[in-house]
Amino acid sequence: MKYTLFCMSMLMLFACGTSQKIVDKPIIFDEERMQLTKEYLATRHGLIQDTPTIVPKMIVLHWTVIPTMQQTFDVFNPSQLPSRPDLATASSLNVSSQFLVDQDGTIYRLMPETTMARHVIGLNHTAIGVENVGGTADLPLTKAQIKANIWLAKYLSAKYPIEYLIGHYEYTNFEDHELWLETDDGYRTEKNDPGEDFMNAVKKGTQKLNLKAAPAKK
């Protein structure tokens, strides 16, 4: 029955006049990255698991502030974190996301949707990350990316029990929430991606999904 409902949902999604698709472009996920990811789940989230899998309940949107898809891919591809003093003390696992959206709206899947990616403090264990190429004054995010993020949110919500759609800048609103799992109370970074205008546009396009916004900041 569940599979039938999923198929019906996907048929409805693809019948809405969109030609959007996902291009698989996997980053390295070797034994080293597997082990580092399991260690991250244990040390940062307090979760001991045989596999680095997640049950997605949230979509977190980001911007890369990197000018091209390939340059972003090259940053995410290694298993170990390059020089990032603000993050290295927490883990040597490299940052990444499940999806990367180029300026023209092309969606790249960098890793399996239910494998943990390091992209948002406190919530990696339950969040699918979507990185968007750009985000600077010289290279702002595009309408094509807005449309792609809307499509992707619908696609993921048809497959998984997604409850929340948030921007990276909202992640600390989840402190004290049941989904928040971060063992170090002092480990935080300031974020403003992917911008409020971009988030509002994506949320407007996904209203019918009835996804929750981030909790109000306490």
Rank of each mutant, 00 (worst) to 15 (best):
M1D: 05
K2H: 06
Y3L: 10
Y3K: 08
T4S: 04
L5K: 13
M10L: 15
M10Y: 09
L11S: 09
L11R: 11
L13Q: 09
F14K: 05
F14S: 05
T18E: 15
T18W: 12
Q20V: 04
K21W: 07
K21M: 12
K21H: 15
V23N: 13
V23K: 13
I27R: 02
F29K: 03
D30C: 07
E31N: 12
T37N: 03
T37Y: 06
E39H: 01
Y40N: 05
L41I: 12
T43C: 11
L47Q: 01
L47I: 15
D50A: 12
D50I: 04
P52D: 09
I54Y: 04
V55G: 01
I59S: 01
V60R: 04
V60P: 03
V60I: 10
H62E: 02
T64R: 02
I66S: 07
I66V: 14
M69D: 09
F73W: 12
D74W: 04
F76I: 07
N77I: 10
P82I: 04
S83E: 14
S83N: 14
P85F: 05
D86G: 03
D86K: 04
D86P: 02
L87N: 12
T89Q: 14
T89F: 11
S91E: 11
V95T: 14
S96G: 13
Q98E: 15
L100C: 04
Q103P: 00
G105Y: 08
T106P: 08
I107Y: 05
I107D: 14
Y108N: 03
Y108C: 02
L110F: 00
L110C: 01
P112N: 07
E113T: 13
E113K: 02
T114M: 05
A117V: 03
R118K: 13
H119E: 13
N124T: 06
H125N: 08
I128C: 02
I128G: 00
I128M: 02
G129H: 00
G129T: 11
V130C: 04
V130K: 09
V133D: 00
G134V: 04
G134I: 05
G135Q: 04
G135E: 07
A137N: 13
D138E: 15
P140S: 06
L141N: 00
T142Q: 03
A144N: 14
A144R: 08
A144E: 15
I146T: 15
K147V: 06
I150Y: 01
I150D: 03
W151K: 10
K154P: 03
Y155E: 14
A158P: 12
I162S: 01
E163V: 08
Y164T: 06
L165I: 03
H168W: 08
Y169W: 07
E170A: 10
N173A: 11
E175F: 07
E175D: 12
D176A: 12
L181E: 09
E182K: 06
E190H: 08
G195A: 03
D197V: 10
F198L: 10
N200H: 14
Q207F: 01
A213D: 15
A216Y: 02
K218H: 12
